[in-house]
Amino acid sequence: MAVYKRRYNPYGGTLTPQWSRFFVLTRYAFAELFKSRFFVILLILSLVPILFFAGYIFVANNKTVQLLMQMRSAGLFSVENEYFIMIMVAQTQVAFLLNCWVGPVLIAGDLTNGALPLFLSRPFSRADYVLGKLAALGLLLSAVTWIPGLLLFSLQAGLARNGWIWSHMWMVVPIIFCSAIWILMLSLISLAVSASVKLRIVATGVIFISFFIPAGLGEMYNSIMGSYWGRLLNFTEMFRLILAKGFRERTGLLGPLSRNEIPVPAAWGVLILVCVLSVVILNARLKAREVVRG
């Protein structure tokens, strides 16, 4: 089918492995995202807090700088589990905002003009499709959560020496796993909303609502019934509960979590349930063809 020949020829070249094809979607999603100047600015701003956190770690481990700043005092600069909780809380909120901007367009763009049958008429399943889009969000949100978290952990380990890394190695697990559940939940909610709502501004609103309305309803339930189980509907609080448990936090840094009435497995259950519900919505929305039931 060479241009100059102007005739059709079948393709006889090599093919990429089938398992890797979902990544084509991820690559194209990133290419489209990075065309937007606003997105690039947002991403840079998302990484700015990391510089401050890194600066703090540097100062905390540098006595000369502390002397120069006349701030040398025992315990003033402490890089322990509470500090990493702070980092994780800050960056997961940043991830939430980033997700609200990026997530709504990922699937809606394909559904608006009916491109989905073109994807699914190839050796490419709906699972591959979701995986490709999920990978785009997952990689992006990882870049502002657990990856900088691990880099800061490494920085602290490198500067502190004296075996700090070995006594704090356990923190690697909550850094990765707590971020992972948050990223997975955010991504799946975003994709489910993107598959259901075509307008970006409305989809962004729906993502916000999906976090705040259940939390409000939960509080109403608590007030009326004199219970605390309504907090299960506050996904952010459930995540912080998991975070506090993961980082062995017992000082009440995360406020209401110090009450700890909700068992941690229940918090995990809620977040996993939200993920499952999002997958159910995706399964219902991502069809190659509309089926009219009658």
Binding site: N113, G114, F119, P123
Partner: peptide, 23 residues
Amino acid sequence: EAFISKMSGVRFVRYMAEISGLP
């Protein structure tokens, strides 16, 4: 209708060909 409206024509076709397995 089946297309991605914001993509250029050639990029759209390339995208689909890559999903079919072409490098």
